[in-house]
Design a protein around this nucleic acid. Sequence first.
RNA 1: CGGGGUGUAGCGUAGCCCGGUUAUCGCGCCACGUUUGGGACGUGGAGGCCGCAGGUUCGAAUCCUGCCACCCCGACCA
Length: 491
Amino acid sequence: MSKKLTKRSEDYSKWYNELVIKADLAENSGVRGMMVIKPYGYAIWEKMQAELDRMFKETGHENAYFPLLIPKSYFSKEASHVDGFAKECAVVTHYRLKTSEDGKEIVVDETAKLEEELIVRPTSETIIWDSYRKWIQSYRDLPLLINQWSNVVRWEMRTRLFLRTAEFLWQEGHTAHVTKEEALEEALKMQGVYADFAENFMAMPVIKGEKTESERFAGALSTYTIEALMQDGKALQAGTSHFLGQNFAKAFDVKFTTKEGKQEYVWATSWGVSTRLMGALVMTHSDDNGLVLPPNLAPIQLVIVPIYRSDEQLDAINNRVNEMITEFKDKGISVKYDNRTTYKPGWKFAEYELKGVPLRIAIGPRDLENGTVELARRDTLTKEIVKQDNIADTINDLLLEIQDNLFKKALNFREESITKVNDFDEFKEVLNSKGGFVLAHWDGTSETEDQIKNLTKATIRCIPLDSDKEEGICVFSGKKSKQRVLFAKAY
RNA sequence: CGGGGUGUAGCGUAGCCCGGUUAUCGCGCCACGUUUGGGACGUGGAGGCCGCAGGUUCGAAUCCUGCCACCCCGACCA
């Protein structure tokens, strides 16, 4: 099979599709818009999950699991929530199949129609809040800090592997609090956790901000987001955290008794990240040779390839490598020794490059003699000869350096891709020629936001949280603006 | 969901307009031998409901109808 990828400069989206398939991350299935996540792709997702799960637990959350199917009536209890999701719900209407009259096929048994249709969850707020009503009686039961790892289904019109699939894996946190302030603090805290994860594990710089009213989650009072920039200059929403106010508490009648003995509705948040992060990871670091993985998320951090002519040479190399592997494992380095005789070294080099393994050691008879190895970095595609002494330390240091280097490279690109503009012509010019994020003044109205979107395809990705409050005039309407907001074309 | 395109072996493809022997080629796969510091070479071999279901015809990969999936562009969205 030819493993040559389309170049990013030729066709970015083709490059992405080919890379996901050739690096063995995922493939399409027989179900429209639903993907098969292959073992290598799933291993990366598992590393993401493990770290996020650790971070959630460290911030006091517990995991639980709620049903896949939600009664339609639950779903309709929160009005704006229904509006937001109604158009993309899969619905279960029957519970039995039967053999057709002519015995040739399996058909739906019309007599087995459900009294009440069930919705395949597009998100779990409703079914979870139905439980919370029973779980929460007193201020002593709060805060309730729950996370769920699950799959959800959203019947998307246009799908792309990882970036937008009809079914995706994610986690959804759902918390309940005594006060508005505490809930807001939670929503912001989890946005911070996401940003921390994105930057320190995915090596993907993100901008923290708040969504405008029109981009807000259906049912939320405010939505906090982390926005990343992909190599083609388009933005990607990488995670969201919502302050839900008392909307769901009221819809599901979740009240608690205060210290003072009064009945009050609880305050809520929800927050989630999904397998979309896999797409973000690919589009942040990878190059024309294939995937580039940050060491913190690489299932294999180091691969060792033996170079040999005779069986005797291979034996000698095996012996030396096995000693090294012990050292690597002691340091917690995830190492794979590929001494398969069925593939040649050149083939293996290309293969592990395609799969984004951060470091590669090649070791042959020459190295055994000299006490060296050939060490190759995936991020810079450079090779050097290094001493076998303290090899595990060398590798460990390099992994840290690669993690750091990938982040800096991405950050550098992101910083270069943020342009401040002051009038609408400049706004359009920058979006068309350079892309990336555009920082511009906005009058705060949905009308202006809509018109800009219609004219340029750019949306307000967020109102940045930690930017200077600088007054100005809206690039579109010329009305007063309190601060610049972040525009971009987005995935 | 609207417009456009594609579907032939694991992958990439020729053939389709203009129906007619055993469906083309490359990669990959299997066997044997030679090889092994950047995707090796030779010889031999296997592998196909031509996306699926109907129809037209003496005869369909090829023509017609319906469906499914994928890709691109819109509207929608994490």
